[in-house]
Design a protein around this nucleic acid. Sequence first.
DNA 1: CCAATATGTTACAGGTCAGTAACGTCCAGT
DNA 2: ACTGGACGTTACTGACCTGTAACATATTGG
Lengths: 194, 194
Amino acid sequence: MRGIGVDAIAEQAGTNKMTLYRHFGSKDDLIIACLRDVAAEADEIWAEFETTYPGDPMAQLHAWVREGADCVLGDPRGCDMANAAVELAESDHPARHVIEEFKNAHRHRLAQLCRDAGIAKAALLADTLWLLLEGVRVSIQSVGVEGPCAHFISIAEAVIAAFATEPAGGQSSRLPDEASIKPRQSLPPLPATT
Amino acid sequence: MRGIGVDAIAEQAGTNKMTLYRHFGSKDDLIIACLRDVAAEADEIWAEFETTYPGDPMAQLHAWVREGADCVLGDPRGCDMANAAVELAESDHPARHVIEEFKNAHRHRLAQLCRDAGIAKAALLADTLWLLLEGVRVSIQSVGVEGPCAHFISIAEAVIAAFATEPAGGQSSRLPDEASIKPRQSLPPLPATT
DNA sequence: CCAATATGTTACAGGTCAGTAACGTCCAGT
DNA sequence: ACTGGACGTTACTGACCTGTAACATATTGG
């Protein structure tokens, strides 16, 4: 963000600085607009899940995993939102609103998807998958695609499978309780992905 | 990185810019020295695991989880290394060497720990835990500590437990194979702007 | 064809920042 | 007490960057 100038942005956008400033009042406004654009693209992808696998939330969940892996491999720069959050850490930048809103929306959407898929501990699975993807998208910038990122699909699918085999009403579950943050609980063996 | 000046760094360090420049040839050198310092601190923590639970790699692994959670809650700024990797993305900054080296060392150390703990698919467990922690440390900057980060310990412990119950020599395992990385089918990748 | 509007161009003001220079000051070792 | 070296202070240069002003040129609708 601070590493690139408005002139460079304008040139890269095929226009010039003045025009940019006539459309966006300031660089911050421009950043916000960019992030909103990223959010809109993500919304489109979510919509695609629903239209491609209508009424099949589990298939949508798998599509989410594949999409996550693809978007990582196709773009080694990670998540624009998360990157912006890192880069704007010092100031209370207005764009942080957009980032927080987007990330929360994404997280809740994922949880809803897990819930619709009949997963008992939907929120917990959603958080696990979320953390894995966020981890992948940030790791790629420090250790590259050859690292742990290469295993994302296997890991994510295994985790989904582990949660899916949980009984819906299970009080005696070996999965950690949604509300508890206590350590030392166990998960059933992870099924394979094929 | 670009968001803070050398003057500010010097003041925060209780000295002044000139002295800083007499010790470090440039700001980049200073950044590298800082990151090396971070790496040294991390090494100390790893050493602590070994001295606190000598000969008990599983206990060390649990300590790693707790340490990860503690270091997240104690510092909402995430991982300095990963943050630097994000912020120095545009240039091929010399500090990227340090970051890559550190992250790889950490990852391999974690894998070794899992191996020593008798985990069958040690590398895979290590990558999973690694991704979870990286995810936590980057998520905290966009959704705060109240989000998925709060479940890190539960999730990590559950994953360890799942891997620990795997038979050592299991060919018939339901965990994904260490080497297998499925060829992916592609969806339109996300373009992005800054 | 002719306004009205959007875009391009150049130049500039004001600010921040990395890095340097010159000079002053403190302090330990001898 | 002297001296060499490390630290502090101030001021400066040059580069870069955001944002604006004034003016020139397209483009579009009526």
